[in-house]
Design a protein around this nucleic acid. Structure first.
Length: 423
RNA sequence: GGAGAGGUGGCUGAGUGGCCGAAAGCGGCGGUCUUGAAAACCGUUGAGGGUUUGUCCCCUCCGUGGGUUCGAAUCCCACCCUCUCCGCCA
């Protein structure tokens, strides 16, 4: 959530910021609401103060054994007035809160202008697109030929956008997961974390998926109100919800492997074939909770941590910075890492590394105690995939395929694959 | 699923209608002492918001949401969560 005081102090600037995101902020509506809030809040608090002092007076009179009947009569309709004022204030505050919960984060100055993913800006590339002296297949054909990847069986079991893996290919996915977890925990200093795969709505509000993006989520039936997680970001970041973190403990660095569940509402017709876009996929997620003054550096570092997975695997990729129109709701700046997929002759997103500033922290009430001021201040949150395992599996298959349709196993994965050479 | 206990400040834990934003202890911070540290002693120490820049005043917060009352941490109702015992179970 954005800081409402920015809107109070510099409405023009705030409106301008939102315009970059294509949000047309209704400043008249806001100003009216805010003026009402001010009036009603002062009125409410005045009435509360009066109630408090009169009640105190009655208590003291009673203690002295005086007659309190006249005092009680004086209170009169104060209670009713107060109740009415409190209800009005509550209504206004609810409206303001709803308004602000629906506003996206301000963008970082360095985010390029633009409307769609076509306007994202390449920051760097690593490696050269893999070339073959034969006709390269995509992962769908490779998986089918190996008879270790089956979309038809999955659609029988469940429906579209699911897959089954079997044999060495299933193990390869597990190997990738293990490799990523080990790299991030042993080398990059993240703390391995296991979390629930279902979360309550408070957690989803905290990280920004709710209230605006409910249609992207799978909600469980029954009374629990729980949702399947769309990313480990939700449970992991919510570890620090409603906490004040000791400055000495920062930065907090978590790595978690979870399945992710997404309804993919609105993506009908996109990537319908293959494993690129599924309702369920595996992901290794990196999350950092940091001091504001270290956030930008941490965002770069986290992105590099994710890139390192691809470098170790020898998979060519590029990094792009998302433009204004493509940057997600809660993020102030996002780098996407895109891996080269020979089957599509394209770079495809395999990781999204975002800096949220204090946007999530304000919703989460995630704070740290600044030793300089002694006061709690909002932390900054950063996260990124390190990496999307399913898509990494695809990338390995397509980039490491042989003419016979087998998959060579990257060196770093061999220990996890019983030292075999080929799938 | 059945029975019971409990949710209070960074932590432990008192508090059953007004003197309670809340005892005490621990922890933290500052100081005295010390070559330094520890110990001891003294002081200090919750969060959020309004108003205002007069740092004086005011408001809210004792799991959450309602209710009773002039007045609620304290009484009533609902819900959530934690723990213990029994049953069941991966």
């Amino acid at each position: 959530m954005l800081d409402i005081s920015i809107f109070r102090n510099d409405l023009d600037g705030a409106v301008e910021q939102l315009k970059r995101r294509g949000v047309d902020f209704d400043r008249v509506h806001f100003s009216n609401l805010e003026a009402q809030r001010k009036t009603v809040q002062v009125q409410t608090q005045t009435l509360q103060a009066e109630r408090n002092s009169r009640s105190k007076g009655i208590g003291q009179a009673k203690a002295k054994g005086e007659d309190i009947a006249p005092l009680l009569a004086e209170v009169g309709t104060l209670g009713e007035q107060l109740k009415a004022a409190e209800e009005e204030l509550q209504g206004i505050q609810r409206e303001l809160n709803e308004l602000f919960m629906g506003l996206p984060n301000f963008l970082d100055e360095s985010v390029p202008e633009g409307k769609s993913e076509d306007d994202n800006v390449e920051v760097r590339t690593w490696g050269e697109p893999t070339s073959f002296d034969f006709e390269a297949k995509d992962h769908i054909d490779l998986g089918a030929q190996l008879e270790q990847m089956d979309f038809d069986v999955a659609s029988k079991i469940t429906g579209s956008r699911f897959v089954t893996l079997s044999g060495p290919l299933a193990r390869l996915q597990r190997a990738l997961t293990q490799f990523m977890l080990d790299l991030h925990s042993d080398v990059h200093g993240y703390s391995e974390t296991y979390v629930p795969f279902m979360v309550n709505s408070e957690s989803l509000k905290g990280t920004g998926q709710l209230p605006k993006f409910e249609e992207d989520l799978f909600k469980l039936s029954g009374d629990s109100g729980y949702y399947l997680i769309p990313t480990a970001e939700v449970p992991v970041t919510n570890i620090v919800r409603d906490t004040i973190i000791d400055a000495a403990k920062l930065p907090l660095k978590f790595v978690a492997h979870t399945p992710c569940f997404r309804s993919e509402a609105g993506s009908y017709g996109r990537d319908v074939r293959g494993m690129v876009r599924q309702h369920q996929f595996e992901k290794v997620e990196l999350v950092q909770i940091v001091r504001p003054d270290e956030a930008e550096e941490a965002h770069e570092a986290l992105t590099n941590n994710a890139e390192m997975v691809l470098q170790k695997l020898g998979l060519p990729y590029r990094v792009v910075v998302l433009c204004a129109g493509d940057t997600g709701f809660s993020a102030t700046k996002t780098y996407d890492i895109e891996v080269w997929l020979p089957g599509q002759q394209k770079f495809r997103e395999i990781s999204s590394c975002s800096h949220f500033g204090n946007f999530q922290a304000r919703r989460l009430k995630a704070r740290w105690r600044n030793p300089e001021t002694g006061k709690p201040e909002l932390a900054h949150t950063i996260n990124g995939s390190g990496l999307a395992v399913g898509r990494t599996l695809i990338a390995v298959m397509e980039n490491y395929q042989t003419e016979e349709g087998r998959i060579r196993i990257p060196d770093v994965l061999k220990p996890y694959m019983g030292n075999r050479e080929l799938v």
